[in-house]
Design a protein around this nucleic acid. Structure first.
Lengths: 220, 220
DNA sequence: GAATTAATTGAACGTTCGTTTTATTATTGC
DNA sequence: GCAATAATAAAACGAACGTTCAATTAATTC
């Protein structure tokens, strides 16, 4: 009827976050009730309000930390100073690895934006724009140097991100393709899409010879 | 207090469908209440149940008819007997035109699948698979003939569809780019992505010289 | 070991939800 | 113009929702 033996605030909060990501990804934010979430954690609904003042606060926290994680992952993976093709390859590899590894929170962050208040929506979109800006810069640099031939930098960046993020819709770990095979194929498609032509790149990025980088499988 | 002057079942039902597509696209299916929908139509909530027995029936109807429309549009636009590059171009043009024209119902059909019952979800996914199968067939034919170089037909088809459908996320009519410019750029990206190489296609599909097809703007 | 703090329960609040029922009025067919 | 039918309103149903509050117990501090 009150505090239970072995109860620990940090563990409970972590359990709430994890259960929330999974439930929201599966049912949707609106369809998930706080009682359902509490039951998944093994707690009463009222206990959730010790950690998150409202349901929307919980959603916002999940989204903000997802975006922070994405940006941090790219900051860590970004090549210090390299040619546009190398930078683009790093961007694609990081993006695919991150999104496959965090399918559920990606789902939440992409699908539940409309449940945020105006101010919080603005914050998340700002983070997203900052991340996408990196890709546009790579495409622009590559176009100016002449290693890419891109008609419209902004449009191409959006098309690439939609294409890459879409991997979470159909990819299931342990099925026909491995993560590194998928990454290699997306890299190949990306390089052809932007018309990469330096260093005989057309064959370099062919996925007939997949990248055997174990980093892809253990990036997170 | 009862039937109102000038009331007409057909008109009311059409108004309900249109308002529902817009409201669900904006708020989400779970977040839209039947009372909200009724108010948008200018009617009491109970009146909606004359046309759709449940809220989920309404959602399913919208989705099924969206998918039927997509398949019918492709049946009408599909070239009778043509080379893979021509067929692929027709597929891309039809897909982009349809999705730009029906952004809201596309949004609904893509985002609200989890609110369907198991059987109805299966039905919609069956329609979707049939539509995607057409693209895979085009890619396979092109690969066998040698005009495309595609690593993985299934993966490439998914990537292309995600890329193309993503246009509804950022495209707004009347802004920087016209529909035909967007279509031309996507066509160019698609052809490069699949490595189309017949008839000096690399330059043919460059969007530097956009397709001026007015069909794109008046397809629906 | 007493006092304090942390973690949780159980019950309740007011609101909103999808849906049903019944009554009432407009339109249509004869 | 009268009967039949179509289209709606008004009110109500029970259930579920997010959230709050007071009580209670476990862990920690001194």
């Amino acid at each position: 009827m009150a505090r239970t033996t072995g109860s620990d605030g940090e563990k409970t909060e972590a359990a709430v976050r994890e259960a929330a990501v999974n439930l929201i990804a599966r049912l949707g934010y609106e369809a998930m009730s706080m009682r359902q979430l509490a039951a998944e954690v093994g707690v009463q609904a009222a206990a959730l309000y010790r950690y998150f003042p409202t349901k929307e606060d919980l959603l916002f926290t999940l989204m903000r930390e997802h975006m922070e994680g994405l940006i941090e992952a790219w900051d860590a993976a970004r090549p210090a100073a390299a040619d546009p093709a190398t930078r683009l390859a790093a961007y694609v590899e990081n993006h695919i690895a991150f999104h496959i590894e965090r399918r559920h929170s990606t789902h939440v962050s992409n699908m539940e934006l409309r449940s945020l208040s105006h101010d919080r929506l603005t914050q998340i979109l700002k983070q997203r724009t900052a991340y996408e800006k990196e890709l546009r810069a790579i495409l622009r640099d590559g176009s100016e140097v002449g290693v890419f031939s891109v008609d419209d930098t902004g449009l191409t960046a959006m098309a690439l991100i939609q294409m890459m993020t879409g991997v979470i819709v159909w990819f299931r770990p342990g099925e026909r393709l491995s993560i590194s095979e998928v990454t290699a194929t997306y890299l190949s498609m990306t390089m052809r899409l932007v018309g990469a032509k330096a260093h005989g790149v057309t064959t370099t990025y062919s996925a007939a010879r997949p990248f055997g980088r174990t980093k892809d499988a253990a990036a997170f």
